[in-house]
């Protein structure tokens, strides 16, 4: 009986570790996938909690409360089968999990998550550097700017003009034509 419990506990631990690992990997992709895997993890500990109440009375109170959140996460069914009939598996759900190293054009990025009671409580970046191992500017996003916040220039101070393609006729009255004429 004890061996069976120990084996199933080990199985449950492995299952939760894998779930944690997967959410660690997914977190590098999108936040929405993190949310879905997080529900899955909660679901598995929830089922642990409900069976745990039959095994040991000492942890039943706290495990029961996590079980209630688990029941809301119906997507945790995959973890539920391996976690059934075990005690103490919810304790294993506390820990940190490192995702795989993902190559981006800003350099290597690796994310670590901390899981407590089946919930992701912290997300940190283990690796966030470029080839020279300097910290890098992650965002090159285009943001709204006012007209006087962008680089300014007068046509007298530039050597060439970029604009939507003009026809040969329209060129005559373009700023580029004026520059070209000055340099002929």
């Amino acid at each position: 009986m004890r061996t069976r419990a120990a084996v199933s506990a080990a199985l449950a631990s492995a299952g939760i570790l894998i779930a944690g690992w997967q959410s660690g990997v997914h977190i590098a992709d999108t936040s929405s996938s993190v949310a879905s895997t997080a529900t899955g993890t909660t679901g598995s500990t929830g089922s642990t909690g409900s069976t745990g109440s039959t095994g040991s009375s000492a942890t039943s109170g706290s495990a029961g409360s996590s079980g209630s959140t688990g029941s809301s996460g119906s997507t945790g069914s995959s973890g539920a089968s391996s976690a059934s009939g075990t005690t103490g598996a919810s304790a294993k759900a506390v820990g940190t999990y490192a995702g795989s190293v993902v190559q981006t054009r800003f350099g290597s990025v690796q994310v670590q998550i901390t899981v407590q009671a089946g919930k992701i409580t912290d997300v940190t970046a283990l690796q966030l550097t470029d080839a020279e191992r300097r910290s890098v500017q992650i965002s090159n996003q285009a943001a709204p700017l006012l007209r006087d916040e962008v680089l300014q220039a007068q046509s007298a101070n530039v050597q060439t003009i970029s604009g939507a393609t003009v026809t040969s006729d329209a060129y005559l009255n373009s700023l580029q034509a004026a520059l070209d004429a000055a340099n002929l």
Binding site: R147, V150, L151, Q152, A153, Q154, S155, N157, V158, Q159, T160, I161, S162, G163, A164, S174, L175
Partner: peptide, 19 residues
Amino acid sequence: SWAAGIVDPLDRSALLSAY
């Protein structure tokens, strides 16, 4: 560097920015 002006699409006789 070469200074390139960018035409203002709302007034093609003026520059909006430079690069």
